[in-house]
Design a protein around this nucleic acid. Sequence first.
DNA 1: CGTGCTATTGAGGAGTATCAATGCGTGTGG
DNA 2: CCACACGCATTGATACTCCTCAATAGCACG
Lengths: 256, 256
Amino acid sequence: MQAAGGPRVSMVSEVSVAQIAPLIGRLRRSDDITEEEAQALAAAAEEQRTHAPRTRIARSHVPLRNSQLLIDGFVSREAELPDGRRRILAIHVPGDFVDLHGFVLRSLDHEVVALTTATMVLFPYERMLSVISDHRHLSRVLWFATTVDAAIHREWIASYGRSAVARLAHLFCELRARLEAVGLADTSGYALPLTQIDLADATALTPVHVNRTLRQLREAGLVDFRSGRVEIGDLAGLERVAGFDARYLYLNKVDR
Amino acid sequence: MQAAGGPRVSMVSEVSVAQIAPLIGRLRRSDDITEEEAQALAAAAEEQRTHAPRTRIARSHVPLRNSQLLIDGFVSREAELPDGRRRILAIHVPGDFVDLHGFVLRSLDHEVVALTTATMVLFPYERMLSVISDHRHLSRVLWFATTVDAAIHREWIASYGRSAVARLAHLFCELRARLEAVGLADTSGYALPLTQIDLADATALTPVHVNRTLRQLREAGLVDFRSGRVEIGDLAGLERVAGFDARYLYLNKVDR
DNA sequence: CGTGCTATTGAGGAGTATCAATGCGTGTGG
DNA sequence: CCACACGCATTGATACTCCTCAATAGCACG
């Protein structure tokens, strides 16, 4: 469960409502959420946990008791294929409710794993239920968040019709747009402390081919993925190669 | 908008609450839904429309006013890649709320297309809102349905790590399980009036390769896809080849 | 009885995988 | 403080899956 060398026990600490509320507020630029609602939801947080890189945060097919908001680091949802290969189904960035669907499904169909050191805030289901019954609009906001996850899934499905170059380019575009929404990226790039193996498992390519494809993207002057950072050389060109259209992220009300 | 040869106007008719309510009731074996709730939801239906094969049912990126329940036929969600190729993102079977996520998102990121003659029942958003406010548990039921869609998306993502044979096998297994849940399949097979081109667009393979892969599956005695029907020769073997584990469909409460 | 779409089969090619080796950086223990 | 181990990145050579192009046949429909 824990990677060799990682801490045996995750760090647990108290949650500061004042600290999470603004994060919640800016989570979804696409939906109206009042200050009061953000406060109420933040108050439902129970505790905060920090996980070491490569450690599992939630298991599949076991009953859950809380949903988790990622506030720092990168987290993935992963499945293991029958032959043992790892497949990354989704990558989460700070501000994402990572297993909100578990609130409805009561168990997950995949693992949740920390790709980097990751800090999560836990929301027990009972508290979420009572917050929702007091603030009924929040129910729609949370539902909305899970449907955006599904839209991202669909874009990944469509991505398998793309070439290796376009697929990687698309992943970089998507993460840039999502990170920018929470102030963690701009047009020049962003921190992405993943390995090429992670990118391979997320794009259904081999690490070797990811390496070669990254070189192509670098030599084309589009992106340079190096030492945990995505350095964007030509954003417009990258988005053109990727066939990227941000509307599926539902980041702006005008898209709807 | 309409395929050549299809009817110019879809057939519109009155909805029979008595007819849809049972369908709604058995939609989700995985969640409790009372008879009263099923009736209330069915009463929110406005009208029923029948679409010709290959015609578009809903467009992407335009504001929506209702969600649609598929009660007969097969429907797909489709995206078009920049180079014009079609990608099928999801296949819906009778009993599926095809664009329920539009209720929350207010517009779709993809097209909805009738693969066969398809009959849909329309639920205007205003009516859904009032039903939900009267029967608050239904909100959870509908949310649940969209999260199961997302789980299916994830399984398709994982599927791209599978070989062509396993990917097609997995699709046949999934559709069988979902159709069985609404009484349209058994262990021996089911009607699936799609073309090999449809299967190709759904699996990100070429039609030629689908054809050859289908032959392999047939010669292995696993499945025979022919003239609009999936004839299963060896279900256990098929599921083994596919690496199929039905839990992600959340068809049974025990899975949760 | 064409017209068009789908299914099937063949031949050859492209893209990506596999196998293998080396280098590189970091952390660790002697 | 150095030697080593280990995981990751990089590159080369080769293999294989799946794609592309092409042609034909079958079938439904007007």
